[in-house]
């Protein structure tokens, strides 16, 4: 059985994010295998939501495109399940709590496990509300990924202690999207987390260039990139696969150099 921790096994991880169903499910399927071949260590698939409050314009628009193209939670689950044998890297879902709750939390997680999903990231379920889904996650063997942010301060230790899979370190204030520079002292956030847990820590939000990926991987266990990839998909539509592969390859090389 594939586990999230396999992505960090003795190496720094590169973690790409794509919005499921953008521009269509068929392309999402091709992207998943292509990104794996290009060196992705763990893949995050966003289940599109009508009101993604943690996202900047790039991923908001991807969610809108995917929903307009008819992507549903069932459609995505079926797609991932159909690729179960081809995907050897861990795959996690990123979505908001309402699509999960509305589907039926238990039924959703059962279907995730059946499709081979290893974990879920739910940005609008903070530490205090984990009980909403944590029990069902445990029951179905799905790891619930926790997040820490530059404003977490005194909360980092309690969050890290309970964290599963990997700890998602939000690099900056604000929403997802490409940033010129990352000014937060990510290194000290991670140091605090590592004092109480040996959980792998990966950094996301605002990472778009190989240099940024290298710098962030240097102080952590991996780098996550979303908006920069979604932008390539928006630009090339169904023909995006080779462009995304090249990009993932370049980011992966930068992350390896940080090892």
């Amino acid at each position: 059985m594939i586990r999230i921790k396999d992505a960090f096994n003795g190496k720094k991880a590169f973690i790409p994010f794509i919005t499921g169903g953008d521009p269509d499910l068929e392309t999402t399927g091709k992207l998943l295998t292509a990104m794996q071949e290009a060196g992705a260590d763990l893949i995050e698939i966003g289940i599109p939501f009508s009101d993604p409050i943690a996202e900047g314009p790039v991923i908001q628009e991807a969610d809108e495109r995917a929903l307009k193209a008819g992507c549903t939670t069932d459609g995505l689950l079926d797609l991932v399940k159909s690729l179960k044998d081809k995907l050897t890297v861990p795959v996690v879902f990123m979505t908001y709590v309402n699509p999960i709750f509305s589907y039926g939390t238990d039924r959703f997680l059962e279907r995730c496990a059946d499709a081979g999903i290893c974990g879920i990231i739910v940005p609008d379920v903070p530490f205090e509300e984990r009980d909403e889904i944590a029990g069902s996650c445990r029951e179905h063997g799905i790891e619930l990924v926790s997040m820490i942010a530059p404003t977490s301060e005194n909360r980092i230790r309690s969050i890290a202690k309970e964290a599963e899979g990997f700890l998602y370190c939000v690099s900056s204030l604000g929403v997802t999207g490409v940033r010129q520079e990352i000014s937060t002292d990510v290194g000290s956030m991670i140091k605090t987390a590592k004092e109480v847990s040996d959980i792998p820590c990966a950094v996301g939000f605002g990472i778009s260039t190989p240099t940024q990926a290298h710098d962030m991987a240097k102080v952590s266990d991996g780098a996550i990139t979303g908006s920069a990839i979604v932008k390539i998909i928006a630009e090339h539509g169904r023909d995006c696969v080779p462009y995304v592969s090249d990009y993932v390859r370049s980011m992966k090389e930068a992350v390896i150099k940080a090892s």
Partner: peptide
């Protein structure tokens, strides 16, 4: 009710 918001806003 509850507090279903991003970690960034929790301390606020």
């Amino acid at each position: 009710g509850g507090q279903y918001i991003t970690e960034t806003l929790m301390n606020a």
